[in-house]
Design a binder for these strands. Structure first.
Lengths: 112, 112
DNA sequence: ATATTATGCATAAGAAAATTATGTATATAT
DNA sequence: ATATATACATAATTTTCTTATGCATAATAT
């Protein structure tokens, strides 16, 4: 996913959030979007992405729609209602995580 | 470590940074310090901590000094020169990670 | 008195999430 | 013809963590 291990555990958060912002997306599109908005710093590998999408779907957070685009196939994913709720929770967790990491690496943050 | 998966991959960064700030610490002290500065939100388990310390030591980032404190034993860890360099790199990675996550969940950040 | 909690180390089994390596197939550019 | 891009997928392996267990001493609560 990237040179740093920090991204471990953040893939689902990223996927849920992109789908909140973009209504529906297919797998390859997600990899390109992430590469684009991080200026190439973050590359999501297929071996991580597809299993993650399948898991989120199995948990009821995503719905799939298969589209035949020309002669190729695309699987469009979108958030279910449950998925929208989950996304809100994940964003809260992300902000708490970032806050705690900032505090730890720079104790002055805790004085705010 | 916590309710959220996001902390996966961040333990080494946390350890290196605490040792930068506190010169030398022993394992149990690290768990208590982290609990304290995150108001109990982040609890580092022993099953994660001790293997992580051993790994950082094996990689040459930490030096150990065994102290007999009363009848108990403490293993004090401190950064090697290599460890200090590594810590700087990890902090840069952390800030880049946070920046990228902020951009992804809130595209407005990219306009700064 | 004695049971629990705190202090302090450690490892082993298992789960979760990733990497790396494949595999299939079409489209396009050199 | 060959490489790159698009588009899906899975399998083997590695990394990192959780959960469970083990040993031992010290302090505190009942």
């Amino acid at each position: 996913m990237a040179n740093s291990k920090l991204y471990k555990g953040s893939l689902q958060t990223i996927i849920l959030n992109l789908l909140e912002q973009n209504d529906k997306m297919y797998g390859y599109e997600i990899t390109q979007k992430v590469k684009q908005i991080t200026n190439g710093e973050l590359k999501i590998t297929e071996g991580a992405l597809y299993p993650a999408l399948h898991k989120l779907e199995a948990e009821g957070f995503l719905d799939v729609e298969i589209i035949n685009f020309g002669n190729r196939m695309r699987k469009y994913y979108k958030l279910t209602e449950q998925g929208e709720t989950e996304n809100v929770n994940r964003l809260v967790e992300l902000q708490e995580f970032i806050k705690n990491m900032q505090i730890m690496v720079n104790p002055k943050f805790s004085l705010e």
